Deep mutational scan, measured.
Amino acid sequence: VTTYKLVINGKTLKGETTTKAVDAETSEKAFKQYANDNGVDGVWTYDDATKTFTVTEMV
Rank of each mutant, 00 (worst) to 15 (best):
Y4E: 03
V43P: 03
D41S: 13
T3C: 13
V40T: 03
D47I: 04
T50Q: 05
E16N: 08
D48A: 13
K32F: 05
G10M: 14
K32R: 15
K20T: 14
D48N: 09
Y46R: 01
M58R: 11
Q33V: 09
A21F: 05
D48L: 06
A30M: 14
K20Y: 12
D47W: 03
D41V: 14
T19V: 15
T52F: 01
D37E: 13
N9V: 14
F31H: 00
E57I: 09
T17Y: 15
N9L: 14
K51H: 11
A24C: 14
K14Y: 09
K14S: 10
A30S: 08
V43T: 10
Y46N: 00
A30N: 08
K14P: 06
D41Q: 13
A21K: 03
F53I: 02
K20E: 14
K5R: 13
V40A: 03
F31N: 01
A24M: 13
K5Q: 04
K11N: 10
W44E: 00
I8W: 09
T2V: 12
T56Y: 08
T3W: 11
F53Y: 07
E57L: 08
L6W: 03
T54Q: 05
T18E: 10
T52K: 02
V40D: 01
A35P: 01
Y46K: 01
Y34I: 06
G15D: 09
W44A: 01
T54R: 05
K14N: 08
V7N: 04
A49S: 12
L6C: 06
E57D: 08
T18M: 10
V43I: 12
G10P: 02
K11Q: 11
N36G: 08
E28A: 12
D48V: 09
E25G: 09
V43L: 10
E25S: 11
V43N: 07
E25F: 12
E28W: 15
V59T: 13
K32A: 04
V22D: 06
D48I: 08
T12Y: 14
N38D: 02
F31K: 00
V7Y: 08
V7I: 14
L6E: 02
A35I: 08
D48K: 09
I8E: 02
V22G: 09
Y4D: 02
T52R: 02
Y46D: 00
F53A: 01
K51W: 05
K5W: 11
D47V: 05
Q33N: 07
K11V: 14
N36F: 15
V22C: 12
T26K: 06
D23E: 03
L6D: 02
D23K: 04
V43G: 03
T17E: 05
G42A: 02
Q33T: 08
V7K: 06
V59I: 12
T45C: 08
T26E: 12
V59H: 12
T12I: 11
T2W: 13
K32H: 08
T26S: 11
V22A: 12
T26M: 10
A24L: 11
K20A: 11
Y34N: 01
T18G: 04
A30W: 15
D48C: 07
V55Y: 02
A35H: 02
Y34K: 02
L13V: 12
